[in-house]
Design a protein around this nucleic acid. Sequence first.
RNA 1: GCCCCAAUGGCGGAACUGGUAGACGCGCCGGACUCAAAAUCCGGUUCUGGCAACAGAGUGUGGGUUCGAUUCCCUCUUGGGGCACCA
Length: 872
Amino acid sequence: MQESYEPAAVERAAQQYWQEHRVFAVREDASRPKFYCLSMFPYPSGRLHMGHVRNYTIGDVLARYMRMQGHNVLQPMGWDAFGLPAENAAISNNVPPAKWTRQNIAYMRGQMKALGFAIDWEREFATCDAAYYHWNQWLFLRMLERGIAYRKTGVVNWDPVDQTVLANEQVIDGRGWRTGAPVEKREIPMYYLNITRYADELLQALDELGGWPERVRVMQANWIGRSEGCEVAFPYAPDTRAALGREGALKVFTTRVDTLFGVTFMAVAAEHPVALAAAQANPQLAAFVDECRRGSVMEADVATQEKKGLPTGLHVLHPFTGEQLPVWVANYVLMGYGEGAVMGVPAHDERDFEFAGKNALPIVMVVRSATGAYQDVLAPWIPAYAEHGEVVNSGQFSGLSFQAAVDAIAAALEKKGLGAKRVHYRLRDWGISRQRYWGCPIPIIHCERCGQVPVPDADLPVVLPEDLVPDGSGNPLAKSADFYECTCPKCSGPARRETDTMDTFVDSSWYFLRFACPDDGERMVDARVEYWLPADQYIGGIEHAILHLLYARFWTKVMRDFGQLSFGEPFTRLLTQGMVLNHIYSHQPAGGRKRYFNPADVYVRRDADGTEVSEVATAEGPVRVEHEGLGKMSKSEGNGVDPEGLVARFGADTARLFMMFASPPEQTLEWSDEGVQGASRFIRRLWNAVYEHVSAGAVPRRDGTPLTPEQSKLRRAAHQALAKATDDIGRRHNFNTAIAAIMELLNAVARFADASPQGRAVRQEALEIAVLVLAPIVPHVCHALWQGLGGERALVDEPWPKVDPQALAQDTYQIVVQVNGKLRGHVSVPADSDEAAVRAAALADERVQKFMDGKPVRRVIVVPGKLVNVVI
RNA sequence: GCCCCAAUGGCGGAACUGGUAGACGCGCCGGACUCAAAAUCCGGUUCUGGCAACAGAGUGUGGGUUCGAUUCCCUCUUGGGGCACCA
């Protein structure tokens, strides 16, 4: 063994050993329990950042730990390779997205290999491989056959200058990021997946996901947003009938049908047919509808904009009283949500209250709640107005409780044919069409004679040409005749291929299945999937808590219902990694495009008047930058930290140890490399301890003679550390405290000076435990240290060590003594003391006596094995 | 705006099930080694008062439950994530 620790050499040797022996290549094996350890695959943005290092190290620690626990472990890796950044790179560098993406993959693969992850690289693939996305297309066609996939119009952000659809990310303050032009909403035909058909199951099955964090299940449940309520139809009044030229009714969904008699107005979305009809005869309204069309489609924008409305002048009829209710157009009503119309009950809904106040609409109280006193005049809004209570002023329904009123009104509506109870979900169907080039083509051909025609299975995959370069003005596929010109599979006439591609969430909705059978050219999935899946552990960022995880669950259920899988939930246990945050700095020249700068390049200068100014040096001189706060490390905000520098200076083990020691995995982590020296120092200290120990000659085995007190103490420390670390890694996934336990153990070894044969045997045992426990976290250095300690096998083949209960045994323990809840001392009691003995020992303590100050004891609380609290 | 999460020394964090607040590490201070520095090793390090023993205060804010609250409940503040076309 080398005297001094040289990370580069140690890491090269260990990685070489793993590769030569194909240590991490796995196959199905019925003789061992399997463990599928899956980390979210990365988008190949160019470089790894510390968020990746954290994610994949967590996965690697668990994978290596489970391997030591005797499992057949699969840890695969691939690339979420389609997406917008490749197009942006293409625009700025004039490189085809395919080339840029594949270069990034090659680079990042190298970075990952340098970090020494126990990955079966033989299963690697990228979602931009035709052999993979072939099956996106194939399953899409199956969905189309069964009505899970369908076509309808949807609203998108439209940049009128570039004549292109913008992603939400490309809309900044309501304007296109490149052109600065105000964004408009535009309706276009798109393909949708009917995820709402699965809403109830996606919600119900959350209860079975006991291995998922509670917060993720809560977020998903809220997202699905099941609500029980009532559909109500308000028949058109004569003026509306005349304007629309037909009979009909305005339909709304409400969870508060008990307040139906408090309706004083109706509000519809700007795109609603009633609004459009009214606008034809009313220029002011037409202008307002037009104004609503501006701005982005993002919910956050819509929800925070000022609530505005205008009357249509048209009316509908109250289903019971027949009263004429005015119909307003409101910018807070969304066409894509529910029926695109809501009933306005200002007395019992805060938003309606605000709207009525602003527009001088009447307010009618119809509920007397327990805490909100019934008053005729409502001054400012109080939350009690929205509470349930006795229904009043509601004709035949007056006097009923909330539930009775809901039941009675719903029954009466149903009798009239003007409504019924209904379950409504907040969840909307999944629009998968993207008017973009770098994605999986949607396998559809549009024929003037035959309409929408699926590409025959035999012609799959529809291959995406890889040589196009987008220029920011729309989808290059739509300009490439080579791509879109085709013949109709039905009539053989000339036809046009669909040029929209699929949402990249489609790619990531089933990649984890394909890792089980990446080489199957005939089928999407095969029997190997049933061996490996569901994944036993999934690890990824909390930012995916809703969309990705919900889509993956949905996709799995669809495949199950198509008979391809036997299970309906893809991930048994989920660990949501907290994000690694870093400061975000940007600069936006007047009228220009915003640029982001890496915090490492930002320095702070003091202005003439002493205020701090953040600046970045550029070729054009210093540029003043704005601090936008903290955010997750990402390419788009330029705040990623590449681990490469760290690995070059300290080695991969130090980088891994530092990340794992910094905080528990689920916690958000603000980036700082302070402390990285400490991680490096610890590894070196461990190396030196092992070197010193083994260079003193052969180590005898522990003989049968009793240990000295010091020897027992070190043995106890070793097995205590082992017990703690095993629990921390295996159950709690708190690697920081496992590392701390081993640090304490190493401190104990350093203090242990016994050079007798028995002492050396005890030290050997302690060092072996330290090396084995650290092996999943810092595998390279442990690989070398294990050899140094005389390991007969390679470390990767060693089992996890076992705690010796005898080593832990103690004959006395310490009890904390409090007086009135304040710590006043400790007493040592024999391990077999009963409660009375502990109590007596505590009361006899002189410090306790002092603080009791002769006062009578009112109560004594004894917590066995821990504490005595004397209350006076 | 809505949903979810977080806040503990100078810093990262520990305290797992309501029971010793600050484990472990960083940084800093002092010492040893050295011509000197780095590295390494040893000791100290929540704040206030005190030479000390010790006492008091203290886990974002304000309140509550409890013998006892970093932990449970309510309120507010700040930061972060998500909001359906960033991934």
